[in-house]
Design a binder for these strands. Structure first.
Length: 228
DNA sequence: AGTACTGTTGATTTTACATCA
DNA sequence: GATGATGTAAAATCAACAGTA
C-alpha cells in the first residue's frame, strides 16, 4: 500500500519537534496533502472498529505502515473518538425522543379509552337505577359494587342484571319484572362491550394491567375512575 | 464563472489525570 | 510522601477545503 508522505513542513508535529505556529502551517499547506488518502482512511477506520484507542507500540507501527507521523495517527484517533461520541449522543437523543413520542401517544389513547369506559359505566348506572323500587330491590351505584378477585366485568354486570330482574339466559325469553327485552339486550350489549374493552386493555400495547386492578376487592369503577 | 454558505476533517490549545524517577 | 517531567485523553476551537445553491 502506497501512502502519501507529508512534506518536511507537514511533518510538523512529530514527537520530537514542537509544532510550528498556525501561521506558518497555513502558508505551507499543500493542496491534496492535507487530507489522508482513501487507503489511509480505510485502514484507520478498520482498526478503529476493533479498538478505539491505540497502544503506543501499535500507534508507531500503524504510523510506519501509513507513512504518517505517530502524532498524526494519535490525532486522527482522538478526532475519531470525539466525533463518534457526538454522533452517538445524537443517535441516543433521537431514540429517546421516539420512545417518548410513542409513550405519549399510548398515554393519550389510554386516556381516551378510560373516558369512554367511564361514560359507558355512567350509562349503565342510569339504566340500572331506572326502576329501583319496583321489585323491592333498591338500586345501587355500580361504582360501589365489590368486584371479587377473578371476577370479570360481564359476571359483575350479569349479577347486576339479575338483581334488577333481567334474565341473562339465552333460553329464557320471559320478562320477569316488566323490563322490555330490548332493555335487557341493550344492557347485555354494554356488558359485552365493557368486557371487550377490559380484555383489550389487558394486553394493550403489551401493558400488564394486573398490577393496576386491585385484587383486594375495590370496585372496578373505582380503579377506572382513579386511573389516569 | 464567481460567491456565500455549510459540512468535513486534520491540527492546535487547554486542562486534567496518571505514571514514574 | 511530595514534586517535577512526561504522556495521553477529552473538549473546544481553528483553519483549509469540498460540495452546493
Amino acid at each position: 500500500m502506497e501512502f502519501l508522505t507529508p512534506s518536511p513542513d507537514e511533518a510538523k508535529s512529530d514527537e520530537t519537534t514542537p509544532p510550528p505556529s498556525k501561521k506558518i502551517k497555513k502558508n505551507k499547506l499543500i493542496k491534496n496533502q492535507r487530507r489522508f488518502s482513501d487507503d489511509q482512511i480505510k485502514l484507520l477506520e478498520s482498526i478503529f472498529e476493533s479498538e478505539t484507542r491505540l497502544e503506543p507500540r501499535k500507534k508507531l507501527q500503524l504510523a510506519r505502515e501509513l507513512g504518517l507521523q505517530p502524532r498524526q495517527v494519535a490525532i486522527w484517533f482522538q478526532n475519531r473518538r470525539a466525533r463518534w461520541k457526538s454522533k452517538q449522543i445524537e443517535h441516543d437523543y433521537r431514540t429517546l425522543q421516539a420512545d417518548y413520542d410513542n409513550l405519549a401517544s399510548r398515554f393519550e389513547s389510554l386516556k381516551q379509552e378510560k373516558e369512554s369506559l367511564h361514560l359507558q359505566l355512567q350509562k349503565l348506572n342510569e339504566l340500572l337505577d331506572k326502576k329501583p323500587e319496583e321489585d323491592g330491590n333498591p338500586g345501587r351505584d355500580i361504582g360501589t359494587i365489590k368486584s371479587e378477585p377473578g371476577t370479570n366485568l360481564s359476571i359483575f354486570v350479569e349479577e347486576a342484571l339479575e338483581q334488577k330482574g333481567f334474565s341473562n339466559s339465552q333460553n329464557d325469553d320471559r320478562i320477569e319484572t316488566g323490563h322490555s327485552r330490548e332493555e335487557g339486550s341493550k344492557l347485555q350489549e354494554i356488558a359485552e362491550s365493557l368486557e371487550g374493552s377490559e380484555k383489550s386493555s389487558e394486553n394493550w400495547y403489551g401493558f400488564e394491567f394486573n398490577g393496576l386492578i386491585d385484587p383486594s376487592g375495590s370496585s372496578s369503577a373505582h380503579w377506572l375512575n382513579s386511573w389516569v
